[in-house]
Amino acid sequence: MKTLQGRGLVAGKTQGDLIFTNQPIAFLAGVDPDKGVISDPKHELVGQVFTGKVLAFPYSVGSSVGAYVIYSLSKNRTAPAAIINMNSDIITVSGCAISGIPVVDLPDGGFESLRGIKNASVDASKGTVSIV
């Protein structure tokens, strides 16, 4: 068991399968809010379902409406259980803040060590990510 110390940005605690990418994600026209899947044809995770999983990506890019897409994911019950970022951003944090999706980011390092990890626990009140 290894614990990475980061910053808890939106409160919540969860554990689940981890999906990792070091490519940024665009929420508008890059994910499908009905299916909870990465839909951007240029993204390495295209076709990957993230509903109920812990989704790790460096930060979000693209449209400012992305925050509303995150909210749609939560209302559609297709949202990830938690988000881990390397350096989080305003789109992700504002969207998750009104959706109650926990967010932790790891600006001091450790993000890359999540590659290949199958399962992670996120505790945003402590700002930690634990991996087995």
């Binding site: 910053r7 940005l9 508008l28 400012s64 409406v65 509303y68 749609s72 305003i90 944090v93 504002s94």
Partner: peptide, 29 residues
């Protein structure tokens, strides 16, 4: 939440806001 994200020490007044999210095709139901 954004204050925490960006290490802001306080909020400041602004002179103009421009909001996005007015299209039904993007923000949906």
């Amino acid at each position: 939440a954004i204050g925490k994200l960006t290490d802001a020490d306080r909020l400041i007044p602004i002179a103009h806001a421009h909001v996005s999210g007015a299209s039904y095709m993007t923000i949906g139901e």
